[in-house]
Structures are given as C-alpha cells and as structure tokens.
Amino acid sequence: MIRVLIAEDELPMLQGLKDNLEFEGYEVATATNGTDALKKLMTNRFHVALLDVMMPGLSGFDVCKQARAKGNKTPVIMLTAKAEEIDKVLGLELGADDYITKPFSLRELLARIRAILRRTGADATTEQNQTHQVGRLLVNFTAYTASIDGVETKLSYKEFEILHYLFTHKNETVDRDELLDEIWGTDYQPTSRTIDNFILKLRQKIEEDPNDPRIILTVHGIGYKMVL
C-alpha cells in the first residue's frame, strides 16, 4: 500500500487531507509539528511526504533540508500559503520535489501525488482495487470504471466527478452551487439545470427505480444527498 506522511499544524486541514487520501486508498501517517515530522520521516518508509512550510518546531523547509542531509530520499511536496517565487525556489533547492500553494483543490493535489508516484516507480496498483457499490453501480473512482451486474457501464468524466463528490460527502446535503464550484470550478459556471440533468443520468444507472430515487435524493431548494 502507498504510504503518505502529512505534516500540517492546522488540524481541520490535516484531518481533511487524511480522510480524503485514505478514501483514495493510501495509508496515511500524520504530524502536527516539524520535529515529529522529521522523526517519522527518518524512522518509517513513505512513498511521499506532504510538508507544510509553516509549522511549530521545524519548518517544512528545515524538515526537508535535514532529511536530505541525512540521506532520506522520500519525495516531498511542500504545502504553503506563500506564493512568492523565492519561496518556491528555496523549497526546491532544499530538495523538495514539488510545491503547491494553498488554497488548492484535492484533485490537483492527487494529480501531483500520482505524478510523483509514476516518476519514482512506486507500486500504486492497490489504488486500482478500490471499488464501491453505489446502488446498482459498482464503481472504481481511480480507474474511472463502472459496471452493473458485471457489464461495463459508460459514465462521462463529469458523471464520475459528481458521483465521487456525492459519495465522499454521503449522508450530507450538498447544495448545487457547491457542486458547480467543485466540478466545474469558479471560472466557468453552468446553470443549476446542468447539475439536475447530470443527476437524472446518474439516477438512471444507480437507482432501481429512477422515478422513485432512494440513493441520490433531492433536497428541495438546496441540492442533493447521497444516502448509503
């Protein structure tokens, strides 16, 4: 299993990253300060480490610098609110492999992690085995495959993304604007009717009776809720 270290002192962000990476099939260890992060990095094997730059004790820069000086070659992605070019250059010169500026989307972070895993040749096949039953649909969100009773079912990229987001937030109400921002981004805004049309298509694949949905429910005036 792919092992990831997350070093982040903001607890809500730390827990959110941990939950999402575990959902993707990764094994996750955490640290809330630089000293603990360096200790874990030097005493355990990780495929990638996410280091927040501003942490108590040692900064992410210091953790990376000291780990590299001791011969640790774990790939490092720096997480920081700083966007100045000099900070990016400093992180990379100290041995970081990549750099992502807060706020960032989960999809961007996952793409960067997977890019590093491909470059390092890490075995990520465990991710491909993560399948989930959503009504009639058996879906693999990493491989972008879906089937019903063993027969492949075609879903568009946007259908996968909407389904994934609802699944990640199952049993929670997700409003339409939230879905629009997360799936299409803030630069391009389709209408709420677009979301409704995608939900209709998903219900036809998931529900036993699309006209009487029991899994993707409409929360009138707000959005949708996936009940599993």
Rank of each mutant, 00 (worst) to 15 (best):
T126D: 05
K102E: 00
L163M: 13
D175W: 09
T168R: 15
L179K: 04
A111P: 00
R118I: 09
Q133H: 14
H169K: 01
G150N: 11
D123R: 09
T168W: 08
L117H: 11
D177K: 10
S147H: 03
G135S: 04
E108N: 10
I162D: 01
G150F: 01
I162H: 07
Y165F: 15
N171A: 06
R112N: 06
R112F: 10
Y165L: 15
A122V: 13
Y144V: 02
K158Q: 13
L109S: 13
F160V: 04
L138E: 12
Y157W: 10
F104Y: 11
I116A: 01
I100N: 00
T145G: 03
L109A: 12
S156T: 15
D123H: 04
I116D: 02
I100T: 04
L106N: 09
I113E: 11
R119V: 03
T101I: 09
P103T: 14
R176I: 15
D177M: 10
N140H: 05
R112P: 06
R118C: 02
A122D: 06
P103H: 11
L106G: 12
D123L: 04
N171G: 08
A111Y: 03
Q128S: 02
Q130T: 04
A146M: 02
L110A: 07
H132F: 15
R136Q: 11
V134K: 07
D123E: 10
K154M: 12
F104K: 09
T145C: 01
I148M: 02
E152S: 13
D175P: 00
A122Y: 03
G150K: 03
F167S: 07
T173Y: 02
Y99T: 08
K102I: 07
L110K: 13
G121W: 01
I113S: 09
T153E: 14
A146K: 08
S156P: 14
E161T: 08
D175A: 06
N129Q: 02
H169Y: 07
V134P: 08
S156R: 12
F141S: 02
H164G: 11
K154S: 08
Q128A: 03
I162P: 03
L110E: 11
S147M: 01
T142M: 05
Y157R: 13
L179N: 05
K154W: 10
D149C: 11
I116K: 02
E178Q: 06
L137C: 14
D149Q: 06
V134L: 10
R114I: 06
R119W: 01
R118Q: 01
Q128V: 01
E161K: 15
E172W: 07
F167L: 06
Y165T: 11
H169I: 04
L109H: 10
L137S: 10
K102Q: 02
T145I: 03
T131W: 03
L109D: 09
V134E: 03
V139I: 15
L117K: 07
T125C: 08
I116G: 01
L138W: 10
S156A: 13
L117A: 12
P103E: 03
H164V: 01
H132C: 03
R107W: 06
I113M: 14
Y157T: 14
Y157C: 06
T173N: 04
L155Q: 09
R107G: 08
A122K: 05
L166N: 03
A146S: 06
A111Q: 13
